[in-house]
Nucleic acid binder design. Structure first.
Lengths: 215, 215
DNA sequence: TGTATCCGATACATTACTGTATTGAATACA
DNA sequence: TGTATTCAATACAGTAATGTATCGGATACA
């Protein structure tokens, strides 16, 4: 009972690892069978455990789903941050708007989750949250937080690119999100690759070179 | 065995009615529990039957889902057709581009399926098709057909509005679809109403008054 | 009205999944 | 090294869902 490091349990590291493996495996199974259709047993099997491990770590599937959402938001956000960094560099190097957009999107996809499994799971999560009241609230609060941070990043990015929006900012964000989503779905039905072309077209259509003195 | 009306069965009308009731009920249950999570029994219960009726009409749930997709595409298309009709009238009456878009979108939502249940089910169908190989092919062929018809309608609508796209046509269609989708999802999380505002913004951003002599 | 046929209801067998209670091996600390 | 504790494995009910085989009331046609 040595509480030297705060209330945290003792063995923790093994536990943390199995939690992690379970969550990773869950994504695979979710993509394959859907969140609702994914039996706990199959998740465990994919992670190399039995159901005992699962119920020792999570009260039920919903708990794991919530954890997954939390984790996902983090990943996406850091990916976005990196993308903006990359873009700023491109801006300093005097790249064209097209090139900057392209470079940023590429960086985002590389850092985030653009594989088939993740796309499917993200869509699943969204629908699941829309349906299950228990998950919905959490999802929304995460989503809102995420959107806020994204907005900042995008505003930053656009101004660094020496451009400005020709539509209200909030609408711009929504359109970007919509298109990103659609591009992901198209990748799901087409043969694989996420194609950033359409996002570029949209961005160029709803921005113009800044009239301000800046840059 | 009177084959007067072609190979069709005798009692047919009762059968057709129960099929219809089952499909309608399925949408409600799908929205509530997800396609995978929807037990056949619950669908039957909602339709006022027992499982016997179901298995007498469909070999399994997938068959019903396919039927649903087929049906849905039809509905959406006629809704789109009507929307364009309405818009043409507005165009003849010399309305502004904003007004025309607004009127058309309103007509589309009224004729199509803009209720919570239908939005959820449409999203479910899309994901389900992306995952289940058996359904996927069918979905894609329907979807392609639908997209083709939509493209014609939209091109028609835009030119009647005395406008032209500022981005490649194919991209425009995709962006519109993306945004329509997003608007629906937002309605799911917000409190109800589908808001056409964003679609209007997009349309105005990617079109301009036609330079041609026409009109 | 009688009779063949249709179609949904009922009953049954089987499988899949969940969740809990208990056990036993691995791990941390004295 | 011995001992307490943690954590996943195993075992056990219990429930839910599927699909099939059979039955019986309704419908069409003579």
């Amino acid at each position: 009972m040595s509480d030297l490091l705060g209330g945290e349990a003792r063995v923790t590291t093994r536990r943390a690892q199995t939690r992690d493996k379970l969550m990773t495996a869950a994504v695979t199974v979710f993509a394959d069978r859907g969140i609702i259709g994914a039996p706990v047993e199959e998740i465990c099997e994919a992670a190399g455990f039995t159901r005992g491990a699962f119920y020792s770590n999570f009260p039920d599937k919903d708990a794991l789903v919530l954890e997954l959402i939390r984790h996902e938001v983090e990943i996406q956000y850091t990916a976005a941050e990196r993308a903006v960094e990359v873009m700023k560099v491109a801006a300093s190097a005097g790249r064209s708007a097209e090139e900057m957009v392209d470079v940023a999107l590429r960086a985002f996809d590389a850092g985030g989750r653009s594989g088939r499994e993740w796309i499917l799971t993200q869509q699943e999560l969204r629908l699941y949250a829309a349906r299950e009241p228990g998950v919905r609230a959490q999802y929304l609060s995460f989503d809102r937080e995420c959107a806020k941070q994204f907005s900042t990043l995008i505003a930053d990015a656009v101004s660094h690119a020496g451009r400005e929006f020709t539509v209200p900012f909030e609408d711009a964000i929504s359109l970007l999100r919509a298109t990103h989503n659609e591009v992901q779905m198209e990748a799901l039905f087409g043969h694989g690759e996420v194609d950033s072309h359409r996002l570029r077209v949209l961005l160029l259509a709803i921005t113009r070179p800044a009239t301000q003195s800046g840059h």
